[in-house]
Amino acid sequence: MKAQRDVWGDTIVDIGHHDPTIVVVDGDLANSTKADKFAEAFPDRFIEVGIAEQNMVGIAFGLSTAGYRPWLSTFGVFMTHRALDPIRMLVSQTEAPVRIAGAYSGLLNGSSGKTHQDIEDLAIMRAMPNMTVLAPVDEFEAEAATRWAAEHNGPVYMRIARDAVRPVLDDSYEFKLGSVVQLRTGGVISLVSTGVQSSRVLEAAELLSQAGIHTRVIHVPTIKPLDVGSLIAALEGSRIVITVEEHSVIGGLGGLVSEVLSELPNAPRVTRMGLADSWSESGPNDFLLEKYGLSPSRVAEQVRAWLNSPVAGTGTVEQVVA
């Protein structure tokens, strides 16, 4: 198992050998994000801006006007929140080829707690015109998505997890922008997830299967632009759709899937599981996943509880995991 940040660091170094336009603009976190690998390999194409995220975006934009295609290296939370206005003005509105590597994405950031947990990034970035929003599941997809983004001539935001998860793909995987990936087939219940949470949801499905509940698992690596047809095809025949994400239940994957299905006749209702509309805390990964309902066993437990609840299938309530 290899962490996505290591994969990203190694991949941009590999790309750097044949692509002279790639530069990395760092916010004093290269040894966390693993951009330090690039700094060592290509010191002339590594630009340390220091602890100034808005300025990072401005400088990356300026470099892009001269033919460079920068990657921004910092914790995603500082991009999607602190540097949001420069991203909006200088990257999204201008369609600049600036790639935002949103490191330490989601809830699990090495015990830094709520200040550093980015659990609103997908909602924020998918509302941004021209922005491609990616959330790869494992090391293989992280590499494939990084290579795709390196070739893309527009803005990209990509979630990159700090810690390794159980891989669900392999090195034959080909990333296709927009397409969903069916990780598990069978049944009328579909679990839809994104990012590294898809790996944990697949484990949850295995636990449910042992209890006689058969579910599909659909992984959505491209939050934007989503190939709606590929999602609908993967959901065909589903009667219950449950989204699960390492993100707020507001506006992320659950919002996306709800929007898509709300426009279809006779579509199944969508139940959104994820982080409640509140703040989390510092703690080890296992603790956080357990307490906030994202571990495989907790996801399985909540799915079972939902299926057994008297309102399941009546289309009258939504479930938000507390």
Partner: peptide, 21 residues
């Protein structure tokens, strides 16, 4: 050369342009 409007962003963009030069 640069889209502007939200104040305070132009100099950063110019730093990137000058650095590229």
């Amino acid at each position: 050369d640069v889209s502007t409007g939200s104040l305070g962003q132009g100099l950063s963009a110019a730093v990137g342009i000058a650095l590229a030069a």
